[in-house]
Amino acid sequence: MIIAVASPPGAGKTEWICQQIAQTNKPVGYFSPKTDSLPIDTIYLQSKYPQLKIYQTGEEAALLTESDQTITYIEIPWYLDLSGIEPLLTRLNSHRVAIISADVNNTEFKTWADEVVSGNQITKLTTSWQIHRGVLTGEILDFDSLATFWLEMTQGAYGEVVRAKGIFDLEDGQIYYGDFIPNQPELEFKPLNLPRWLDGRPTRKSGFEIVGNKLEQAEIAQTIKDCCVPESAISYYQQQVKESLATEPEVELV
């Protein structure tokens, strides 16, 4: 079975998929078109469900051949034109789910969907929204600096923000997930259940995506740059973490 999920930014596609995966015993697959360079949601879901089968762009044919045994969710990024992906969805005979805030009368999504699910209350989408993406693969960030930037960014220091999310490699070797939707309880950065990276610059993907209005992209880029641990300090931090982990007493749960 193939389920295509679409919504405006921040309505809760990934969270809804997460809930569905938790409720099934069947093998589950996941595909998010056009997000290969910065697969934030993919990495988030994979950290929660390591057995999740991930499909990359170019593997669409496999979706169909494996659909008998697997429930596969196709998460459609909000910035993708629904008509552009229509041929694929038709070929896959997918069930279409739209996640829409109860107070929004979004006819485009309602017409498109086989099923409408109530989602987060979100800021109304307009054509003036910009999307700013920063790929940070290879960079290690300082947690306190990132927290400062995130607070400033979500409070409007770099333009009006209606949605932000990111995955960041931090100096403790863990990769963290950050998520922001206006009017929603603020989510603290949380470490994902993935191995620590303590040997040089990480090669796994990381980065952020900000949706908003009048975004000061150069300022954002410079501030993020100032959050990055310099080359000269990376091995020092990693050695400290290794030593700290080696001396941590083992805790036995009784």
């Binding site: 300082d142 947690f143 306190d144 600096s145 927290a147 400062t148 930037f149 501030t223 100032d226 959050c227 990055c228 641990v229």
Partner: peptide, 9 residues
């Protein structure tokens, strides 16, 4: 400094 960012600024 509380952070690298604060130090730079």
């Amino acid at each position: 400094y509380p952070s690298l960012l604060a130090e730079t600024r």
